[in-house]
Nucleic acid binder design. Structure first.
Lengths: 360, 360
DNA sequence: GCGGATTAGTAAAACGATATACCTAGCGGG
DNA sequence: CCCGCTAGGTATATCGTTTTACTAATCCGC
């Protein structure tokens, strides 16, 4: 008796109401479970029936309710991202935004959403956010950035059984799927080489906070590259990822005695480098004549400033896209997702903020 | 028979499973419905019972499953935002990011999430995104930006019964709750006045696309302010909100004959203004000596460039927060949310990119 | 031509909450 | 003494899916 009334036809509800699986089943003249099997690709439905169901779904413009599916414990069609930074830092550094753009670019075509949680830096806030995300099944997985040394998030996420993809350099033992170009060291190494070739002998590095894995990683690369290209060990200043931090670091580096000033400085990101160029100019130090400056990230900002910024470029948009691809593979290992092209290692983009050393 | 087994106690499921309302009910020795009444503040539960339930919920660290509640048709504890821009534009202009930071600042403390959908500019993409959001009850409401002339989104959202808050200037008849400072015209007016006082006589305006309500609004203010301060009508160039657009506009404005060049230009946003300063410099025009430049938004970027940017500041963080406050009032008119302090009108922030006119 | 394995499909029980309808005890009024 | 009302609950249908268990029909080998 397939024509039996399902007891809940569309006309009994508001006209704007979304059609349900029952409506589709009624129209196709099959049971609700048959429809479910069809849309989930389960076996046990003949080709003609399958086609009838598909047609009916199409005609009613029906798609399964994400909420109901989520309640059942299956996919929520959303990916989470928790940023554990004060929100104003986020606003200043476009790094995140670019990454998010890349992520969205991959998410949008398949109708996935990005659930963003910006929590402050208070201890426990981040953990709470992940717990909620997991317990409430709001997302299928999370994308993390900026692995910290001894990062507790991975263990937490494992406990919560929340699939996670890390963007960037993982800590030695982080048990996590991570997305990054091979040859991460290429960028900083090329930068040091570039400076060495320009005749610079005193090169400094302004690093980010040293609890970040990538801060430490890049610093190490910096130090070994100096040695490799025959330069003396350079000064390293650890700073916050802020313009203020960069300004303070610059002032420290440019303080007398003049002959100990570095002639070139690498910064942990573009925002810092740009802020530093300004600070230098205010101190009467001209870039690149008196000081060469190199940033990291190759954000659009670098093209907008004067002099245009020489920087180490990584294709953050592509990194974001790769992260999503990795997430999808993690969520559904069977469905063969097209393997994305490998990420290109970071490379030096030479613009105007570096020039020949004018002092020994 | 309150001790009756609920048939689904915690120990029967995985140890990491979230407790359900049934677990709480069992622990408190009441029915499931009693717990529901307590957490939803309905009447019919005595004070001692209520306390027992609250204690039990606390002990089990239980909170209602958002998914289940959403399926029932109540709150989802998430706000949506659909950005109908190509994702790379989003990445370049931090305007959105700052706004989102403000929104999150208000959302995070009450455990609301922000569901971001960045869709391309193809026609219909945005509409589809809103439909999905509404049909699938993924969000309680949406925050919109950049009202367009004859904007179809508001009618759509009304049909979908999706509460909406608009950030910025609404079109005359847009039936929507909007958040903006009173006295929007103050910014551009102050900028023109500032330039007039510096002796500028030929002032140009580089506007954004004219389908945006705020583009047209600001342009009108610009034109009437010129008249008000005794200046001749100035050239207006309509451009995309991109660095490239700004560069092209600048080249057009600075083209010979030299004596017709404007001595000051206002831009629709900071990114454009900064790009323009660079373009001018490449043409041998020095800012502010030969050309004064004013931006709009007062993004952190303005402090980082040289010369530091004079701009029209609006507190986007606060605007974002106000939008969320308005949304909460819309969702729950009864619960008296503390009325936020009124938004301050945009005001001129004078830095280094404006100076006295050196040509008549 | 018959038993056992497939195939194609259905009915019904979850998932976790909320709301409606119902129940019971106690109390006051006529 | 009985009726009706209220306070304080409880049982159950519902939201829209997926999944498990089940049934009916067909096919295959012997």
């Amino acid at each position: 008796m397939t024509e039996r009334d399902t007891g809940r036809s569309a006309r009994q509800r508001g006209p704007a109401a979304k059609p349900t699986i029952a409506d589709v089943a009624a129209l196709a003249g099959v049971s609700v479970s048959a429809v479910s099997k069809v849309v989930n690709g389960r076996s046990g439905i003949s080709a003609p029936t399958r086609q009838r169901v598909l047609d009916a779904a199409d005609k009613l413009r029906w798609s399964p309710s994400v909420t109901a599916v989520a309640l059942r414990g299956a996919r929520t069609r959303a990916i989470g991202m928790v940023a554990g930074r004060a929100s104003d830092v986020l606003a200043t550094d476009p790094h995140f935004t670019v990454l998010i753009s890349g992520i969205e670019r991959e998410l949008a075509p398949v109708d996935y959403g990005l659930l963003l949680h910006i929590v402050g830096e208070e201890p426990g806030a981040e953990e709470r956010a992940y717990r909620r995300l997991a317990e409430e099944r709001r997302v299928d997985g999370v994308i993390l950035t900026e692995s910290r040394i001894g990062d507790p998030r991975f263990e937490l996420l494992r406990q919560l059984r929340l699939p996670a993809v890390l963007v960037g350099v993982p800590w030695q033992s982080d048990p996590v799927v991570s997305v990054q170009a091979t040859g991460q060291e290429a960028g900083v190494r090329a930068a040091v080489r570039h400076l060495a070739e320009l005749g610079h002998r005193r090169v400094a590095y302004v690093s980010g906070p040293e609890d970040r894995v990538h801060s430490v990683f890049r610093r190490r690369v910096f130090e070994s590259a100096l040695a490799e290209f025959g330069l003396r060990p350079g000064r390293v200043i650890v700073s916050e990822f802020t313009a203020q931090g960069a300004v303070a670091a610059t002032e420290e580096l440019l303080a007398p005695p003049t002959e100990e000033r570095p002639t070139a400085v690498l910064f942990a990101n573009d925002t810092m480098a740009v802020a530093a160029m300004n600070a230098a100019r205010r101190l009467g130090v001209e870039v690149p004549r008196d000081l060469s400056v190199i940033g990291y990230d190759d954000l659009p900002l670098g093209e907008l400033v004067y002099p245009r910024l020489t920087t180490i470029g990584q294709d953050l948009i592509r990194v974001g896209r790769a992260a999503v691809a990795a997430m999808f593979r993690l969520l559904d290992p069977d469905r063969a997702v097209a393997e994305p092209p490998p990420l290109r290692p970071p490379e030096l983009v030479v613009r105007e903020s570096t020039g020949p050393a004018t002092r020994p």
